[in-house]
Amino acid sequence: MQPEDFAVILAQEGFQPPLTITREPNGHMGTHTHAFEAKALVLSGEISISVDGVESLYEPGQVFHLRAQVPHAEQYGPQGVEYLVGRK
């Protein structure tokens, strides 16, 4: 999916305009929650997200979606990760 197409989808679904987020190589965030719903398109690198003990890997062109208040942990790949994220 192209970033322009993703931005259109976010707007149609009521998300705020996307922000670009960059995370460091081999970094991580322990279990946490967000007060907002997030939908993101991976631009480069990779991110692994663990929810309820189930780990999912996302690579360039893939979209991940997290509802508000869902506990999750994040692990970033050897090149880190860059993604576009819309919040609502």
Score class of each variant (00 low, 15 high):
Met1Thr: 12
Gln2Pro: 09
Gln2Asn: 15
Pro3Ile: 09
Pro3Leu: 06
Glu4His: 13
Glu4Trp: 07
Asp5Val: 12
Asp5Asn: 14
Ala7Asp: 11
Val8Pro: 08
Ile9Ser: 15
Leu10Pro: 06
Leu10Ala: 06
Leu10Cys: 08
Ala11Leu: 07
Ala11Thr: 11
Gln12Tyr: 05
Gln12Ile: 01
Glu13Pro: 00
Glu13Leu: 02
Gly14Tyr: 11
Gly14Gln: 10
Gln16Asp: 13
Pro18Phe: 05
Pro18Trp: 03
Leu19Tyr: 06
Thr20Phe: 01
Ile21Asp: 11
Ile21Asn: 12
Ile21Met: 12
Glu24Gly: 09
Glu24Trp: 05
Asn26Glu: 08
Gly27Ala: 14
His28Gln: 14
Met29Val: 11
Met29Ser: 12
Met29Ile: 07
Gly30Pro: 02
Gly30Tyr: 02
Gly30Ile: 02
Thr31Gly: 10
Thr31Ala: 13
His32Asp: 02
His32Met: 12
His32Gln: 13
Thr33Ile: 14
His34Trp: 02
His34Gly: 00
Ala35Pro: 07
Ala35His: 06
Phe36Asp: 03
Glu37Thr: 08
Ala38Met: 04
Ala38Phe: 04
Ala38Cys: 02
Ala38His: 04
Lys39Asn: 01
Lys39Phe: 03
Ala40Ser: 14
Ala40Thr: 03
Ala40Glu: 01
Ala40Ile: 02
Leu41Gly: 11
Leu41Val: 10
Leu41Trp: 07
Val42Asp: 02
Leu43Glu: 05
Leu43Pro: 04
Gly45Met: 09
Glu46Gln: 15
Glu46Gly: 14
Ile47Thr: 13
Ile47Asp: 04
Ile47Pro: 03
Ile49Asp: 03
Ile49Phe: 09
Ser50Val: 15
Val51Thr: 10
Asp52Pro: 01
Gly53Leu: 02
Val54Asp: 12
Glu55His: 00
Ser56Leu: 11
Leu57Glu: 13
Leu57Met: 13
Leu57Asn: 13
Leu57Ile: 14
Tyr58Trp: 08
Pro60Arg: 04
Gly61Val: 08
Val63Thr: 13
Phe64Glu: 05
Phe64Gln: 01
His65Lys: 06
His65Asn: 12
His65Gln: 12
Arg67Gly: 11
Ala68Leu: 06
Ala68Thr: 09
Ala68Val: 04
Gln69Cys: 07
Gln69Arg: 14
Val70Met: 05
Pro71Lys: 02
His72Val: 11
His72Ala: 10
His72Phe: 08
His72Ser: 10
Ala73Asp: 07
Ala73Phe: 04
Ala73Arg: 11
Tyr76Met: 11
Gly77Asn: 10
Gly77Ser: 11
Gly77Gln: 10
Val81Gly: 07
Glu82Met: 15
Glu82Gln: 15
Tyr83Cys: 07
Tyr83Val: 09
Leu84Ala: 03
Leu84Thr: 03
Arg87Met: 00
Lys88Trp: 03
